[in-house]
């Protein structure tokens, strides 16, 4: 069995028996774990009572966080003509059509978000084998296949976060940096959690949110009261 490092053991000891804490207190606890030389990202992980095999129980989408992510996302856009100009004006890092598709097919995936205008989907569809494994495939449900290109690019640049439940029914996303103030982190986490509650699939029976944990890049998870 892998031995727990001393640093991690020390932080875990602070958590006591691991009882869920109210959000504000949990954020304070997490901030006390700031012992690294770099600015750690803060993540939220929610365990949901969804069955990933059921198509009507998929939890997927995107949410704009009130205080952003603390970093700028690299956004590429598939668009032509006016939409392309609007995307460039909105701050997209790369805008294109056939040339961009060729570049990606060649293996280039140095970006965080891929947005496509609906009329570009014929080009984007065959890129599934490159974009799919990295979670970059544009999707109507996540809001990355949209005619409102400029607005979407601005949202992602301002701190929009995309999420999708994994095979175990968990949803996780980065919601800021440990250098954020406690209030900012609480706002971001609350926005994310409220959005997950808001998009609860109608087909779900039983308890929806079964667990909520926040953590930083190099910290143990801190359990948060879900109700």
């Amino acid at each position: 069995m892998v031995k727990q490092p001393k640093r991690m053991a020390k932080m875990t000891a602070k958590l006591g028996d691991g009882t869920p804490q109210p959000l504000e207190q949990a954020v304070e606890t997490l901030k006390s774990f700031n012992t690294t030389k770099f600015d750690q990202s803060v993540e939220v992980a929610m365990r949901l009572g969804v069955d990933d095999k059921q198509a009507d129980q998929i939890v997927r989408g995107s949410v704009v966080l009130p205080h952003g992510l603390g970093k700028s996302l690299r956004v590429v856009v598939f668009a032509k003509d006016d939409l392309a100009k609007a995307a460039t004006a909105a701050g997209a890092d790369e805008v294109g059509a056939e040339n961009l598709a060729e570049k990606i097919k060649g293996g280039w995936t140095d970006f965080d978000v891929c947005i496509a205008a609906p009329n570009m989907m014929g080009l984007v569809g065959p890129l599934g084998r490159v974009l799919g494994p990295r979670g970059l495939m544009p999707s109507p449900r996540a809001g990355t296949v949209t005619p409102e290109i400029a607005k979407t690019v601005k949202e992602y640049k301002a701190g929009k976060v995309e999420f999708r439940n994994d095979k175990g029914g968990n949803v996780h996303a980065v919601v800021g940096k440990l250098s954020f103030s406690s209030e900012q982190l609480v706002d971001n986490i609350r926005a994310f959690v409220d959005h997950i509650h808001h998009i609860k699939p109608a087909a779900i029976k039983g308890q929806y949110v079964r667990g909520l944990t926040i953590s930083a890049t190099m910290s143990p998870g801190v359990r948060v009261v879900t109700s």
């Binding site: 609906p118 989907m121 014929g122 569809g125 599934g128 999707s139 109507p140 449900r141």
Partner: peptide, 25 residues
């Protein structure tokens, strides 16, 4: 999925667009 994406690019009917988008998802 590729075929649905191609149809999505061509359609201009909003109802058809929604149906294809849901199918693609």
């Amino acid at each position: 999925a590729e075929q649905v994406a191609a149809l999505l690019a061509e359609t201009s009917d909003p109802a058809e667009h929604d149906r294809l988008a849901a199918r693609f998802d």
